[in-house]
Nucleic acid binder design. Sequence first.
DNA 1: TAATAAAGTTAGATAAATCTAAATAAAATT
DNA 2: AATTTTATTTAGATTTATCTAACTTTATTA
Lengths: 218, 218
Amino acid sequence: MESYTEENYLKVIYHLSNLTTGTVQTNAIADKIQTRPASVTDMMKKLAEKQLINYVKYQGVTLTEKGKATAVNIVRKHRLWELFLVKTLNFKWDEVHEIAEELEHVNSPLLIERLDEYLGYPKNDPHGDPIPDKNGNFDSPALVKLSKLKPAEKGIVVGVSEHSSSFLKYLEKIKLTLGTAVEMIEVIEFDGSVDLLVEDTRKNVSREVASHILMRTN
Amino acid sequence: MESYTEENYLKVIYHLSNLTTGTVQTNAIADKIQTRPASVTDMMKKLAEKQLINYVKYQGVTLTEKGKATAVNIVRKHRLWELFLVKTLNFKWDEVHEIAEELEHVNSPLLIERLDEYLGYPKNDPHGDPIPDKNGNFDSPALVKLSKLKPAEKGIVVGVSEHSSSFLKYLEKIKLTLGTAVEMIEVIEFDGSVDLLVEDTRKNVSREVASHILMRTN
DNA sequence: TAATAAAGTTAGATAAATCTAAATAAAATT
DNA sequence: AATTTTATTTAGATTTATCTAACTTTATTA
């Protein structure tokens, strides 16, 4: 059985490995977990001993099948709890991440099964991210960043690749939340921002924001 | 902010202090937490430094007002989660204690307020124990042990003073759960067991069991 | 009252997770 | 190819929580 800290490391390695090809680097993990590279090296050795990761010094790490299964299970728990907090306890989607970071470590498979059943076996969390089922499987449809839409292309907001509270709050403010239909009008060449039509309203969004909004196009 | 371990110690001291006059003893705490007396002594010193308990070596401990407030808050969280598990996720009352032991440490006051609201500001948990409100207040009506009822006296089962899974399972088996109306027929002098009338059925219950069932008499 | 037993404390050890500082290896630059 | 910079690792320290063994204090018994 893994400790909270080990679970957190596995989850971060899992998320980082989805953003990059090749191995996950020590500094990237340290940044995410907000600790020192030396602490990461120490933990990598432990996780390797437990056959949860493949680790060669200076060469980065990859998850083993066992490590990936463990990480996916924690992600599943995190996302089910986030949905519960929003759907049942009326939290906003930007308020749930930290709470779910704690709830995800409760070690009770039956609890998670009951929660899954109670929520109606949902496929996605409040941010649009896929919720793995009890076997670790989930849909991963091809999504495209809003910043990559071409003029006149339309799509629906179905996810975000940035989960910070401030980012999510901002999206709510500008009414670019999950389910919103969007039409690309123009990409402003000079600063990369994008002009959009959202519910009959023209609005401009920076490239930095647009690159974190995930769309399913029509 | 207290650590999980500190919270657990405070909670156990709180429960023990409700069962005894005077101070709570080191060995009693060690038994409940399933650790060594030396570990308890170490932790008592720390909790005293944080002004959560009053501690003089060899003289047992008492909770300070601050310590008691902290303990009552953890009990509140524990009992709200237990009720949630039974009411919303359909757990049995004997399945929830261990899970609530983990959930109670999630550090989010707003979460507990939302849970309280969602559950309808309940006064009691699935075992009949009082749930403190956000100010730490709760009803403590005078209850009497089943073993203390006199012949022909009637009452309603409203609580238990033993929370082990096996005990709760047994009560379900003999249909002596919360809300059950009971009439005392006779106390068997020779072994202290009690003859009862429960829903038109005569049954005999040992004194050991009867002394852990709490009644509100008519 | 003295002896014994039990409760409780202290000292030092271990494990997990983190840190800083120094050292090593790899990558980037010149 | 050599030098410099950055990434990473190693060594040793700290903190928290636990342990065992030995010692001290209190309670019980004779």
